[in-house]
């Protein structure tokens, strides 16, 4: 493998809801850093991970920083591949209109195929 200049496919798998645990926030921090390395970055949201993208998060009452606006800033870091699994959305009574960013909705099969193509799959 060449030193440092190879482009790899990185997938970040988000399966956990925000606020209940820190995983979603710290995952986002890695995504932003990885974007600076000019890699091929995909973010996928599965299971409760789709709740990370829910519009209208108001965290004042729990005295915690609302980090959801950061998902809208991803585009500025050239992170444009955001994928949400259709089955996960449906199981939570959500649709694309409930999400705070534009995403590509994939079936579970398409999600699995995308996952197969990755070099590095990071989940937190």
């Amino acid at each position: 493998m060449s030193e440092g200049n190879s482009i790899k496919k990185f997938m970040f798998v988000n399966r956990k809801a925000p606020y209940g645990t820190i995983y979603a926030l710290e995952s986002l921090e890695v995504v932003l850093i990885t974007a600076a390395f000019d890699q091929d970055v995909s973010l996928v949201f599965l299971d409760d991970g789709v709740y990370q993208l829910k519009k209208g998060q108001q965290t004042k009452g729990i005295e915690t920083k609302n980090f959801s606006p950061a998902y809208r800033a991803l585009e500025g870091y050239d992170v444009e591949k955001l994928y949400v699994e259709k089955e996960s959305l449906e199981a939570r009574g959500l649709s694309e209109a409930d999400l705070l960013v534009d995403v590509t909705v994939l079936s579970c099969k398409e999600m699995g195929e995308l996952m197969n193509q990755q070099d590095v799959v990071l989940s937190f």
């Binding site: 399966r15 599965l46 299971d47 089955e87 579970c108 699995g112 996952m115 197969n116």
Partner: peptide, 14 residues
């Protein structure tokens, strides 16, 4: 549900 999710998403050959 992680095993259920895996079985839903994983593709043949996995």
């Amino acid at each position: 549900n992680s095993l259920d999710s895996c079985l839903r998403v994983a593709q043949p050959g996995g």
